[in-house]
Amino acid sequence: MSAKTLRHLIVIGLIALWEILPRTGLIPELFLPSLSSTLRAGWNEAPEYGHALAVTLYEVAISMAIACGGGILLGAIVGSLPRPRVLIMPMVSSLYAVPLVILYPVFTVWLGIGTESKIAFASIYGFLPTMLATAAGIQTIDPQLILAARSMGATMSQRLVRVIIPAAIPTVLSGLRVGGALVIVGVVVSEMLISSAGIGYLISRYRTILDSPHVFAGVLLVLFMAMAFNALIKWIERKAAIWQTGTRAGQSAADDVGSGAVQPAT
């Protein structure tokens, strides 16, 4: 049996257990409501969840644009110029280790409990790894490639467009993968902490009234959102960077490592 089929079987098995364990009473419905009751709860409150999803997606989209756009731009500058690299990189690297969620209450004081504070927090949260990866991607380009392009008469701008950017794409994408996942985490976590709308808010509100099926319906939605994002990044990677790992074996290894790396600590 291939690893892929085995993986699918495990997922199917887990889903089945999710349905069976609560139904047989082995696990109380309060701790883990069955899959069917979770889906029913979500379906019954579909408009509420739909609205919450819209709010969350909006926040994620804006934060993603700021975090990824800004991260790539600044990372490219920092990565290609030695002086800002020496100044900024150590700071950014140590900042990366700080649990930024401690800043969130400050953001709510500055920006209120609406979407602005979520966007600000998630943007900063996702910005750092994107920037670090882009800077690393630019720095680690094989100088031999640039030399070869020069020997063929490539001008400065031709080197940038035809060599530096394509060569940096794989590293930048791996940064986007982590940065984008952190944006989703940032938005949902900040909604759960202090807010009045969004999926995180719904999860948090239903939890306080111990309505487990509705909590898990929200959890499922976040799960789907993260999976959709992951699928999107994978699709872009396949389109843009087939050459990244060279071999098929290397490609699947990178998949495994990559998806493991998107589970950050909050």
């Binding site: 031999q144 490639l145 030399l147 070869a148 020997s151 063929m152 008469g153 394509p166 060569a167 050459w243």
Partner: peptide, 19 residues
Amino acid sequence: KPDPDRVGVVFQEASLFPW
């Protein structure tokens, strides 16, 4: 400066663009 009309250069290895 490099003039590919007069001079072609072949490097040691890995100077092909992998993409």
